[in-house]
């Protein structure tokens, strides 16, 4: 199965996936998130796409970040999910499940799709 998905699908799901991965892994950083997205089979999410998303989530108070080990080196921006992030994630996951269920029913698939899990 392919690992390159239509951009529109990625755009629709990426914020939710990032929040979920950050919640699952606890403290993490941009490059690790990109690797986990790839390992999850969601495709190769470039830095140019990922970091503005992280910035947006932080601006909305759903993620928080802190720089570590940066003096004289590139350092790392460590991100963590906030309570607001958890709340938004739970709400969007519920909606997403309902939505994908309806899409599946509409296109004539009743159970989990091949390749899922």
């Amino acid at each position: 199965m392919t690992d390159q998905w239509p951009q529109a699908w990625t755009r629709a799901a990426i914020e939710m996936c990032v929040l979920a991965l950050v919640k699952e892994s606890g403290l993490t950083h941009g490059y690790e998130i990109a690797q986990r997205l790839r390992d999850a089979g969601l495709g190769d999410i470039k830095g140019g796409t990922l970091y503005p998303i992280l910035g947006r989530l932080e601006d909305r108070g759903q993620l928080r970040s802190q720089w570590t080990g940066g003096v004289g080196g590139p350092g790392r921006k460590i991100v963590d999910i906030t309570d607001e992030g958890v709340r938004v994630l739970e709400a969007s996951v519920a909606d997403w499940v309902a939505w994908t269920g309806r899409v599946a029913a509409t296109i004539g698939v009743t159970h989990s799709t091949p390749g899922g899990q």
């Binding site: 950083h29 941009g30 490059y31 830095g47 140019g48 970091y51 940066g70 590139p74 921006k77």
Partner: peptide, 23 residues
């Protein structure tokens, strides 16, 4: 400053060319 630091950190860790990773 934030944007630049992110690019530096990402490139240092991934070894990618900044143009490939960020456009």
């Amino acid at each position: 400053g934030q944007i630049v630091a992110e690019v530096e950190a990402h490139v240092a860790e991934s070894g990618e060319d900044p143009g490939d990773a960020f456009g």
